[in-house]
Nucleic acid binder design. Sequence first.
DNA 1: TCACATCTATCTACTGATAGATAAATGGAG
DNA 2: CTCCATTTATCTATCAGTAGATAGATGTGA
Lengths: 185, 185
Amino acid sequence: MTAQDMKETILKAAEKMIRSRGYNGFSFREIADAVGVKSASVHYHFPTKGALGAAVARRYSDDFLSSLGPVDEAPMDAVGVQKRLHDLSRRSLVEENLMCLCGMLGAEVADLPGEVAAEVRVFFERSVAWTEAALARTEWGTRVGQTRRRKLALSTLATSEGALVLARSMGDISVFDEIDLPAPD
Amino acid sequence: MTAQDMKETILKAAEKMIRSRGYNGFSFREIADAVGVKSASVHYHFPTKGALGAAVARRYSDDFLSSLGPVDEAPMDAVGVQKRLHDLSRRSLVEENLMCLCGMLGAEVADLPGEVAAEVRVFFERSVAWTEAALARTEWGTRVGQTRRRKLALSTLATSEGALVLARSMGDISVFDEIDLPAPD
DNA sequence: TCACATCTATCTACTGATAGATAAATGGAG
DNA sequence: CTCCATTTATCTATCAGTAGATAGATGTGA
């Protein structure tokens, strides 16, 4: 396995652990056991826990945005835009029973190393920016101003993150689908 | 200080720590330092970390419901009901920069001791039940069915929890107020 | 050969938890 | 009221386990 592959493997394992247990809920030893190396080897690739956490968040952020796709291929109706965002959360819940990485880290943000908190912030800024831009292309988006588009973007994102928490806490995945996204009008 | 006072003091300190750092982010020693005793004394009052966490959650749940007040004193309009709920989250954000305890624990729920996870679930069930009941008294609530009332209760709660995460993650409390609650119609 | 990757071994600090001692408060029995 | 037993609440000391991190040896592939 090349060094790059090992880094990827570590990042994947770390992402999964953070998304189910939180930043304070995983350790270098667990990561190492999961990928079949020693914890010192994990430190070789990521010198500190903060560096590893930040790399996981950055990678997640990139993947998330790339799953949303280019803005100019987003749905042309506002509800479609919201759904594309919401479905990403839904899939991670249904297929893996995992939190959104940045929903998890966002809750813990006050206790994160600065470099990790910064990446979490970037994730939300990018996600809001994508949604605002996609909404701007819709008929609804042209009728309303930038302020309204930003509000809908933030509200939609907040609803998705909250829906994950409620569905998992109540031990009933179907709760996620009982939750309505805010209406564009 | 009486034993009951000490228990209360410990519960308050633990609540604050969990709400800013999460369940895996606090320790008996930190609690003990914060209240000026030794960690063994904390174990005297709460034998295990799970017992302490569950007691904190139970107390928080009781306080939260009591802050909402009796259902028969809730606002008689649907938006007013939503706002009463949402304002509790808003206050904890603005006044203390803290997460909702069960929003925090809800994110970590997959890694919590069973007794703690159970209390988190109870919190959400009670909160949804209060909101459903309050909505049932409104003009809107009488027009729509129980299913619609439950959906609005869940959606409102999810939005509040998500709004806390976004506002804190983005390092800008005013983001909370940019987020709209789902409209009753 | 040599740079990279991983290992072994270890460090200090902290975790939740327990044992045993102790001082102070409480509560009956004579 | 007083003496003695018990309970309460705390302490010190310690446990085994794990945390993140580091130094230096080992191996391995180009």
